[in-house]
Amino acid sequence: MSFINLDDLPYLTLVGFTLNTEEKAAIQSSLQVKKEQEKLEEIWLWGKILGVQRDYFIAQATKDNLFSRKFYYSIDLVNWLQLPDVPSSDMDRISQVHGRFTGDPAFEYSLGEEPEEGAEEKTINEEKRLSGTVALINYETEIVPRGAYYRDTLHQLQKNVNFSGIPKGELSQLTHYLHFREGFDINKRTLQERADAFDESIDIFETIANDEPKGVWSCQTERTGSVAILRSLLWPGYVFFHTANPPKWGSMYYGTGQRNLNIGFML
């Protein structure tokens, strides 16, 4: 789960960004109001996407199933609007847009291709692009520490209340961090792998150590080794922190919403 408690923002200053006092104060209040209005179980700040004119703040709300989440965005920090669901046909279009976000949700991106006669010009509006980008970022970067979630006997995903954090000396091992996404099937692993590295109840996601290309995650320990900071180099701006004492983790996206297409050359 990708979320950040406003109290944990000081951890993110380790990579250089923060929210200012106005933003923190406004978000705290307005999210509470939104939660009440929509009768949501829980609502968290997800991140901030920097636009040319204005920035988008993104929040997410959870329901019973942790994977079906609702996302909201706000420009003025007061009104939160739900992001539309994006059909997969639109996802293709979204991945063709590479520029900066403008800050106007109604802005239409044209996809550059010359429209055929009679056919409509292919466009995608910024609100949809925002929704698709959030989904993409979640799919490729959203991570949790190993052991923070488990599957119970009914195969339901549960938050592990007894999770005590990753030991301090092992904070910088990538195998301790897992992608928070569906589709991991332990039965597809060889027996050898399962015996060596998997615990069926907590190894319910793919580990990020297998991500390609190698080095796509930058993992550093800060504050004399007590906090692990992971940054995705594929989506510059996604930052995850984890500390074992107290066992806390959180993540936030703070960037321009552009995928790093040059990553192969930059590593």
Partner: peptide
């Protein structure tokens, strides 16, 4: 800097 969303952390 903090007003601009930039911070190195107070201690640092």
């Amino acid at each position: 800097w903090e007003w601009a969303g930039v911070s190195l952390g107070k201690e640092e």
